[in-house]
Design a protein around this nucleic acid. Structure first.
Lengths: 253, 253
DNA sequence: GTCTATAACTGGATAGAC
DNA sequence: GTCTATCCAGTTATAGAC
C-alpha cells in the first residue's frame, strides 16, 4: 500500500537530498504493542494523534509538530518512527485497514452461508455496511476518527486516495456479486452505479460534518449512527431495487 | 459569507502584525468584467486557477504561488486582489454561489407551478438535483472544478465548511417541503435523513474521484454524469419512498 | 529511545519602485 | 495595476548528544 503526495510544492529542491536514503527503523505498524508505565506507548500515541488531526484537516492541514504536541511526545520522535509525514499518514491508514477488511469479509461469509439461496438486496447492503457502521458507532474515538479519515480519503480527487481504497475493492465485488444473486437479470453496470450512490451516502455519514444538524434545525444529528444505520440500509436497498429492475439503455445514453 | 480557518499553524505570531488592517482594495467578485487584450482579466484568471487547484487539493494543499503561476500572474497580484489566501478561497466559493442558488430555486418555482397538486418524489428529487448536475455536465471546466470544490467543502469536517453550505439551506427546505407534499404522512426527521443520503451520493458524484472507474474495471466512469443523472434520481426517489412510508419509532432507537 | 539544535527550506504577506 | 525584493514565521527533516 503506497500513497504518495507529490504536487509541486512538496517537490524536493534541485540539490540532492539524502531523504529516503536514511536507514529508517522499520517498525511494523501492527497490533497494539507493549505498554509503558500504564499508558499506550509513544508510537501508538503518535498514530492516535495523527489519526485525529488528519481526519479533521487532511494531510496538508496538519503539521508534524501538532501531531507531536497532541501525542505528548517530542517532535523528532514522529520522524524517528515514521520517517516522513507521508509515512505517518500511510501508517495511520494501514493500522486498522486489515481488521476492517477481514471483519467485513467475514460478515459476507456468514451471510452467504446462512442464507443459501435466499439472499436479499437488503441483506447484501446490510452486510456491506453494518460491520463498518457498528465500529464507527461503538468503537472508541480512535475508530471514529479512522472512519472519518477513510471518508475524507474516499472523497479525495487528488492522488492521495487511490491506494488504500482499492484495498477494499474485493468487498465491493462481494457486494455486487451477492446483490446480483438477489436480482439476477441486472446488468453489472447498474450495480456499480448503485454502489457509487451507496458509497457516497456512507462516506458522508462517516464524515459527520454537522451540516445535517444545522439544516434540520437540530432534528437530526449527523453523528447519530444508530438512526442512520437502519435508514441507510433501507434507502440504499430500495435504490438498488428500483434502478436495477428498470430496463435502461445499455450505455451512456 | 465568512469562512475562517484558524488551526494553530496559521495563527499569527504574538507580535502585533498589521495583517487585516491594510486598506485592501475591495474589488467585488461579481460578474465577468471587462476583458483585457482579448483574454480574461487577471483577477478572474486567478479565481479560475484557484478554483482548479483548491478543488483538487483543498485549502491547505495549495499555495498562493502555485495559483499565481497557473494563472500566469505575479504572485503578489493574488494578494493585491484578495488580500489573504482565505479571502481568495472565499471569493472562489462565492463567485458562482448565487447563480447556482437562484437557478435551482427557480427550478422549484417552475416545478411547483407546473405540477400543482400532482408533485411526486421523483419530481422533487429531480428538481433538486438536475439543474446542478446539468451545469456540472455541460458547463466548462470552471464549473466542473467549482462543483468538485463544493463537494470537497460539503464533506469537510473542519470548520471551513459551514458557511457556504448553509447558504444553500433554503434549497434543502424546499426539497423537504415538496417531498412532504408527495408523501404527506412522513415525519420531518425521516425526510432529513433521506436528504442526508441524497447529498452524500451527490457529493461523491461531483467529486469524480475515479475510484468507481477502477473498482468497476472501467465499466463505469465517475465523470459520466449523463449516466449518473437518471439513475441517481431514481435511486434516491426510491430511497425516500421506502424510508418515508415505513413506520419507524420516533427517536434515536 | 528520547531530546536539543539546527539545517534547509517553504509559504503567506507586504513595502515600495515602476 | 503590476512586479521586485524581501521579511520572517513556521515546516520537514536530520545530526548528534544523552
Amino acid at each position: 500500500m503506497k500513497i504518495t503526495r507529490d504536487n509541486g510544492k512538496t517537490a524536493r529542491s534541485p540539490v540532492s537530498r539524502v531523504t529516503k536514503l536514511r536507514p529508517k527503523p522499520k517498525r511494523a505498524t501492527v497490533g497494539r504493542p507493549r505498554k509503558v508505565d500504564g499508558s499506550v506507548i509513544a508510537a501508538d500515541r503518535i498514530l492516535d494523534a495523527a489519526e485525529d488531526l488528519f481526519s479533521k484537516r487532511g494531510f496538508d492541514g496538519v503539521t508534524m509538530r501538532e501531531v507531536a504536541i497532541l501525542a505528548n511526545v517530542d517532535a523528532a520522535l514522529a520522524h524517528y518512527y515514521f520517517a516522513t509525514k507521508q509515512g505517518l499518514f500511510d501508517a495511520v491508514l494501514e493500522r486498522r485497514a486489515e481488521l476492517v477488511f477481514s471483519e467485513r469479509m467475514e460478515a459476507f461469509d456468514v451471510y452467504e452461508a446462512t442464507q443459501g439461496d435466499k439472499v436479499t438486496v437488503e441483506g447484501a447492503v446490510a452486510t456491506f455496511v453494518i460491520p463498518l457502521l457498528e465500529r464507527a458507532r461503538n468503537g472508541d474515538i480512535g475508530w471514529k476518527n479512522y472512519f472519518r479519515l477513510i471518508a475524507l480519503v474516499n472523497n479525495d480527487a487528488s492522488h492521495v486516495a487511490p491506494s488504500i481504497m482499492s484495498y477494499f475493492d474485493p468487498l465491493v465485488h462481494r457486494l455486487i456479486t451477492v446483490v446480483k444473486r438477489a436480482l439476477p437479470d441486472t446488468r453489472e453496470e447498474e450495480l456499480f452505479w448503485c454502489f457509487h450512490f451507496l458509497t457516497g451516502a456512507l462516506t458522508l455519514a462517516l464524515s459527520r460534518t454537522g451540516r445535517l444538524d444545522r439544516v434540520s434545525g437540530g432534528l437530526c444529528r449527523s453523528d447519530d449512527l444508530a438512526s442512520i444505520e437502519p435508514r441507510m440500509v433501507e434507502y440504499c436497498a430500495a435504490g438498488f431495487r428500483s434502478v436495477c429492475t428498470h430496463d435502461r439503455k445499455p450505455a451512456t445514453k
